[in-house]
C-alpha cells in the first residue's frame, strides 16, 4: 500500500509541474516527486517483521531478520542530492525574482530578453 501511496506522491508532483507556472511551486513539486521516489525506495527494502539494520546489544547477530539496508543507504544519497538541487533551484528562483519581479515562468517567457 505504501508503494502505491509513494507512487501517487510522484503523480502529485507531476500534477504540480503540469499545472503550475510558479517557480517555487515547481521546485516544491519536484521535492514531492523526490519524496515519493525516496519512500518508494525505502519500501523496496522493506521486509515484513524486519528490524532496522543496526547491530545493537538487543539485535546482536547479523542473522536477524533485517530489512534491506541498501535502499536505505541509497535513499540517504538521494535525499542529499535532492537537497542540493532544491537549494540551487531556490537560489535561481530568487535571482529570477530579482530580475523580473515575478515567479511566473509564463510571464517571464513572454518578456523580451534584454
Amino acid at each position: 500500500m505504501i508503494r502505491v501511496a509513494s507512487l501517487l506522491l510522484l503523480m502529485i508532483g507531476l500534477y504540480g509541474l503540469l499545472s503550475t507556472r510558479n517557480v517555487i511551486k515547481m521546485i516544491i513539486s519536484i521535492n514531492i516527486m523526490e519524496l515519493g521516489v525516496n519512500i518508494f525506495i525505502v519500501s523496496i527494502g522493506f521486509v515484513t517483521n524486519g528490524v532496522a539494520p543496526i547491530l545493537t546489544s538487543q539485535v546482536n547477530s547479523s542473522l536477524s531478520n533485517f530489512v534491506d539496508p541498501l535502499p536505505q543507504a541509497l535513499v540517504l544519497t538521494s535525499i542529499v542530492i535532492g537537497l542540493g538541487i532544491t537549494a540551487l533551484g531556490l537560489a535561481f528562483a530568487r535571482k529570477l525574482y530579482k530580475k523580473y519581479g515575478t515567479y511566473d515562468l509564463a510571464k517571464i517567457g513572454g518578456m523580451k530578453d534584454e
Partner: peptide, 12 residues
C-alpha cells in the same frame, strides 16, 4: 518549449 510543463506532458 521553454515551459517545463510541456516537457513533463511529453514524458507522460
Amino acid at each position: 518549449s521553454s515551459k517545463p510543463a510541456i516537457t513533463i506532458f511529453w514524458i507522460i
